[in-house]
């Protein structure tokens, strides 16, 4: 029975009666307010997917570097990724600094990549497609430039962890870090 009446019904609200403009203004204001309300509701949902406070609390990590002898490396976990901390030999530093900029795919001086000459701190994730390069253990392949070698697609990194050959587009990333003392660094 209700269906039979449907075609006869008005399209929408009754129009040209006195007070229409006032009503339109009121409706617009109300709609604007409601829209603000909906926007306010969306934010907590979006925000809840950002890192939580306990995740942020682990966003920095401290590393005691006193046990790392020259020529040794350690891998530490930082924000779910490996970070390579290497105490370079003088030979390695000399090697890194003698390379002319023109030979580099992603030119950067070794001095700009370290805070203290012998300590190199880089994120151990290949800039090609995210594999972890070899070169941390003494027995690992270190690639043609005596640094790191990514086994996935054959990227070679030098002793400053700069890309020298292979598909990776840029050098291994240097994270934010600081020496809190002579034997401690804080990453992040």
């Amino acid at each position: 029975m209700a269906d039979s009446m449907a075609p006869q019904m008005a399209q929408a609200a009754p129009g040209d009666v006195p007070g229409t403009t006032k009503r339109d203004f009121l409706m617009l204001t109300t709609a604007a307010f409601a829209a603000v309300g909906v926007g306010g509701i969306v934010w907590p949902f979006v925000s809840s997917m950002a890192p939580a406070r306990d995740v942020l609390a682990l966003a920095s990590t401290e590393v005691d570097i006193s046990p790392i002898a020259a020529g040794q490396s350690v891998t530490v976990m930082w924000r779910g990724k490996p970070v390579f901390v290497r105490n370079r030999t003088e030979e390695e530093v000399r090697e890194a600094r003698s390379v002319p900029m023109s030979e580099l795919k992603d030119p950067a001086t070794d001095e700009s990549r370290v805070k203290r000459d012998n300590w190199l701190v880089v994120v151990g994730v290949c800039t090609h497609l995210g594999c972890v390069p070899l070169g941390q253990k003494p027995t690992d392949a270190k690639g043609d430039y005596n640094g790191w070698f990514c086994p996935c697609h054959g990227s070679h990194y030098d002793t400053s962890a700069r890309i020298r050959r292979g598909p990776a587009p840029s050098n291994l990333l240097v994270p934010d870090y600081a020496f809190t003392s002579d034997t401690m660094i804080r990453i992040g």
């Binding site: 007070g19 006032k22 009503r23 009121l26 409706m27 204001t29 109300t30 307010f33 409601a34 309300g37």
Partner: peptide
Amino acid sequence: LGGLVYATKRK
């Protein structure tokens, strides 16, 4: 918002 909505409804 309630005041606005109620006024709109009355109108």
